[in-house]
Design a protein around this nucleic acid. Structure first.
Length: 997
RNA sequence: GGGCGGUUAGCUCAGCGGUAGAGCACUACGUUGACAUCGUAGUGGCCACUGGUUCGAUCCCAGUACCGCCCA
């Protein structure tokens, strides 16, 4: 069967992919030699809602290269695949589908029914990205596909939560978090995008209490007074006027002389019947705006810190949807209580949170409507800082001065939910936290000690920087899709303090509750776990729930306690933080856990080093006291050819599946490998991918050439190199060994780009450009058999070495070119000693290729027609040159298009060539243009002179000879001698030419 | 504002103490026994700038300018 002219990527990929899957070539331990060391990689679990983008394609190509490389070496490999449940994203997708189909909303159908819908969706559509990975050629263990909500994973997550809770490493508290008013949940920093938008800065006057005034003095940078006036107000600036309703203070910098006199005094909060103090804090920037900052502790992260430092009450203004609150007591009641608290009355955190200080007329407004309303009212009250505006009447030329409210147009950074696209509201809510400060130590030590190595090194800096300044980790989400927090709350009535119980199962919790309440109440305790609907149906609010439902006395005097489970679920990152052990079966001590953990290498984007890598480190160390991986390879974002981030709005997204359709998966993979320099930028250009598709074609055609020349006839894979006599064969065998060494070294150092580069240069630059051409004459001569054997050996090695990067085309070729014991994917990685490199053969081939290039170059420059065969005259030749020429005569003649070689003086009208140990003349009588040949020689001389100048200059410098290493000096000397020899030859040729006229 | 990184051929990137490299693009020629998804020969670089260390700096150090990214 004759080979096709080109590799048919789409047909071959489908066929080979199916074959691999059928034979389970990626199964854990497949192709492992007895007693082999383990090599394991955890896939960074893609989002179950996701589809393959360039980042995945890049990332998974690198993982696959490593896995295939190790598997071919006979190591016991596992590439663990799976997806994470992506709480917010999945919930969003399913809610959207429900809305589209006109089904009841999530809230209407309630939790259990909604979750059933999510599972339904997952079973139907959750496998998209996994199938796309197969198209890329990923050789994962597909049978082990994991999911953070399936199998042992939920149990593992619960167990870890309970363990950390019992160790006091998890706690619940009221904190300011990023709140998404659309999804009505806390979200992580990662899910917040900060986008610069056109905003405004309003300037308001907060009047001093009791009509007090002070002298306001403004100075320039030299200290000269530029403004001095009496003021009865302090000027504050804000981009979010609606939050002023919750202000707890005005803060100024301690060094700010302008306000020193009024620090500690009270100001009237506009629109509110409250007084708030002027306080000192380091936070305000005296050079920015007025230097005075309003402090709204419950709605701004910076203000929150100030409020905490100053002990200010944190008044929450909005509900979960970002509307101004309409719950609680009427405003006059609330504000009266607020005044008492300001006056020093004790109030619990819960009471302060329950206090609604939104004036009645603003209640229920959306926060942006409230903003307009607040600004309008302040303007009406004349409490905006005015600015003088001048208008000139064009007819009368009279000037009209007016005061207008001072509103600056200003670019502001606005936090936006990456999925909801709504403005994120810092919100004071009850959340669960991991006390990361207590578990961060081992994670830091592991990297410091080198137990885990992060590449590139800059990643370690980022890692340290973040971990050394770690914040508590908010792990609760107000979602339904996820791992529900295993905490139940007991009743608060009957003077019970409202105990919480944390346990892995309801049985555990019931036992604990029985003991607890039995001790307090002195009766028999029955524990029940009604569902949420039960509580929701009875009443809203803890007290109502309690009185009616959470505890009751039975006829026999016993009590029934009904525990209410925390409705929140855990952050998806909490479960993906357990990915390494969770996918291996933990908490069961499975054989896989023993064998493949800690894992060998993690390959992931540098953008999630905080959110995922660091957390996996902390969690694995906290739970099983081992690092999750030995090496972490971090890479950047894949960008477009111009370096722009790919985004739908820019329309520059490159779909890897389209690329695979057009160029084949191998081309995309090779491009990915070639881009992967350590810390390098990842700009993906389709022109480059096309180039690597061409590279595949090149290899294909070399194999096709071999086939046409009988190389594959009866071919069986040979592990050892043939014993070659012809120089070209010896040489290419040595080049193969060198390339293997380069590829091994490159992959050991995670230099995928260098591996790709070495293979590209070898296959195209050595095998195709030279060796196949050398083989043509050799296949007609006495070395035909050894040349066939050599070519088979070299092309086999090319397929093997390229296989981790280009698995499809190489597997296809492998199957077409010989008797194969195994699929290529399980073929042994070569072991070729560098003793195969024959330095004499290398030198000889360098001489031959040098001569051929000289002749070709001279021919082209002299406009000799390509088809014309020339005679060549050796004007001088040392013995080495003679021998080299003799041994490779057929090659030289064919590739340089030489008819005959004679020895003697340069004939009239010839051009001259100088190579190491020999000079040649190409007789071109009648063809030669003397002026052009002179120019050619002069140009070559100029170049030589420049080089000689540099080399000689260095040798003339005594300091160089004295200080530089011996071998460097020797090299320069040898180089100089070589150039001078060549220079002499060219000079002689030029002289002859001149004397000719 | 803090941190990290970058600046090398027209473009995209390697190199990182010892005479500047690749791919793509470009120019000329070319269907020579695999390959036009190709071949042959070429063109093209004050390696951002300024100092310093060194016998020697694109490479190391300091500073400057510009450009990214992350975190505020």
């Amino acid at each position: 069967m004759q080979m096709e002219k080109n590799f048919d990527a789409s047909a071959a990929e489908a066929r080979i992919s199916a074959l691999w899957q059928k034979q389970k070539i990626g199964a854990a331990g497949a192709n492992a030699k007895a007693g082999a060391e383990a090599f394991s990689i955890m896939i960074p679990p893609p989002n179950v809602t996701g589809s393959l983008h360039m980042g995945h394609a890049f990332n998974n190509t690198l993982q696959d290269i490593l896995i295939r490389w190790h598997r071919m070496q006979g190591h016991d490999t596992l590439w663990q695949v799976g997806t994470d449940h992506a709480g917010i994203a999945t919930q969003m997708v399913v809610e959207r589908e429900l809305a589209k189909s006109g089904a009841p909303s999530r809230r209407d159908m309630r939790r259990e029914a909604f979750l059933a819908k999510v599972w339904e969706w997952k079973d139907q559509s959750g496998g998209t990205i996994i199938n796309q990975l197969k198209r890329l050629g990923a050789s994962c263990d597909w049978d082990r596909e994991a999911f953070t909500m399936s199998g042992n994973f939920p149990d593992a997550v619960t167990k870890v939560f309970v363990d950390l809770y019992n160790k006091g490493l998890i706690y619940r508290g009221k904190r300011l978090v990023n709140w998404d008013p659309h999804f009505e949940t806390a979200i992580s920093d990662l899910e917040v995008e900060n986008i610069e938008v056109a905003g405004h800065m309003w300037h308001f006057k907060y009047l001093l209490a009791d009509g007090e005034t002070y002298e306001y003095v403004d100075r320039d940078t030299d200290g000269a007074v530029i403004l001095r006036e009496r003021r009865d107000y302090i000027s504050i600036a804000t981009t979010r006027p609606e939050t002023m309703l919750g202000d707890g203070a005005v803060a100024v910098h301690p060094s700010d002389a302008r306000y020193a006199a009024i620090v500690g005094k009270m100001v009237h909060l506009p629109l509110c019947d409250r007084l708030i103090p002027i306080i000192r804090d380091e936070y305000p920037d005296p050079t920015f705006g007025s230097g005075a900052v309003k402090i709204t502790g419950a709605h701004d992260f910076n203000d929150y810190q100030v409020a905490k430092r100053a002990g200010l009450p944190l008044y929450r203004l909005m509900d979960t949807r970002g509307h101004m609150r309409s719950d609680g007591a009427p405003y006059d009641v609330a504000v009266a209580r607020a005044r008492e608290i300001a006056g020093g009355a004790h109030a619990s955190e819960a009471e302060i949170d329950a206090l609604n200080l939104v004036p009645d007329r603003f209640r229920g407004l959306d926060r942006f409507e409230a903003r307009d309303a607040v600004v309008a009212e302040i303007n009406k009250l004349g409490l905006c800082v005015p600015v003088k505006v001048i208008t000139i009447d064009p007819e009368t030329n009279s000037e009209d001065w007016r005061n207008e409210p001072y509103v600056e147009a200003k670019k502001i950074m606005q936090p936006v939910g990456d999925r909801s696209k709504v403005v994120i509201e810092p919100m004071l809510t009850d959340q669960w936290f991991v006390d990361t400060a207590k578990i961060v130590g081992p994670a830091l030590d592991a990297v410091r000690s080198g137990a885990t190595k992060i590449m590139p090194e800059s990643g370690e800096k980022t890692y340290f920087h973040w971990l050394e300044n770690i914040e508590p980790w908010c792990i609760s989400r107000q979602l339904w899709w996820g791992h529900q927090i295993p905490v139940w709350y007991g009743p608060t009535s009957y003077n019970l303090a409202g105990k919480e119980f944390c346990g892995a199962t309801e049985q555990d919790v019931a036992a604990e509750a029985k003991t607890y309440y039995g001790n307090i109440l002195g009766t028999e305790i029955k524990v029940e776990f009604p569902n949420e609907a039960f509580f929701a149906a009875i009443a809203i609010g803890d007290e109502g729930r309690d009185a009616a439902a959470a505890i009751s006395v039975n006829g026999d005097g016993s009590h029934t306690i009904r525990l209410h489970r925390d409705p929140d679920v855990l952050d998806t990152w909490f479960s993906s933080g357990l990915w390494p052990i969770g996918t291996l079966g933990w908490p069961d001590q499975t054989p896989e856990l023993a064998k493949y953990f800690p894992t060998s290498t993690l390959i992931t984007g540098a953008d999630i080093i905080f959110f995922w890598v660091a957390r996996m480190m902390m969690m694995q160390l906290a739970v099983v006291d081992q690092v999750p991986f030995k090496t972490v390879y971090l890479h950047g974002l894949v960008r477009d050819a111009k370096g722009k981030k790919m985004s739908k709005s820019l329309g520059n997204v490159i779909d890897p599946l389209e690329i695979i359709d057009e160029f084949g998966a191998d081309a995309l993979r090779f491009a990915n490998a070639a881009m992967a320099s350590l810390g390098g930028t990842l700009k993906l250009d389709t022109a480059r991918i096309a180039g690597y598709r061409n590279f595949g074609t090149k290899l294909w055609n070399a194999c096709r050439f071999a086939e046409m020349n009988g190389v594959w006839e009866g071919h069986v894979t040979q592990e050892t190199a043939p014993n070659a006599a012809a120089t070209a064969n010896k040489w290419i065998i040595g080049e193969t060994a060198k390339t293997l060494a380069e590829v091994n070294a490159a992959l050991e150092g995670y230099r995928f780009d260098q591996a790709a580069d070495a293979l590209y240069k070898f296959v195209w630059g050595k095998v195709c450009d030279w060796y196949v051409e050398f083989a043509k004459p050799l296949l007609d001569g006495e070395y035909a058999n050894e040349t066939r054997a050599t070519m088979a050996f070299v092309l086999d090695r090319s397929m093997i070495l390229l296989h981790p990067i280009m698995p499809f085309i190489t597997e296809d070729l492998w199957g077409q070119t010989g008797q194969r014991a195994k699929l290529l994917v399980h073929t042994d990685w070569p072991n070729l000693p560098l003793t195969l490199v024959d330095t004499a053969a290398d030198a000889e081939m360098a001489w031959v290729t040098g001569l051929i290039e000289e002749i070709r170059s001279a021919r082209t420059q002299m406009h000799v027609p390509v088809g014309l065969k020339l005679d060549i005259v050796a004007t001088e030749m040392d013995n080495a040159a003679k021998a080299a020429f003799a041994r490779n005569e057929a090659l030289i003649k064919r590739l340089a298009r030489i008819e005959t070689l004679t020895h003697g003086a340069a004939p009239k009208g010839s051009i001259s060539l100088a190579v190491d140990g020999a000079s040649f003349a190409l007789p071109l009588d009648g063809v030669i243009d003397v002026a052009e040949e002179k120019a050619r020689l002069s140009k070559a001389m100029d170049k030589l002179a420049k080089e000689i100048g540099g080399l000689a200059g260095r040798l003339k410098n005594p300091a160089f000879v004295a200080s530089a290493p011996e071998d460097v000096v020797e090299e320069v000397r040898a180089n100089l001698a070589l150039r001078e020899e060549e220079q002499a030859k060219l000079a002689a040729a030029l002289h002859r030419l001149s004397s000719m006229g």
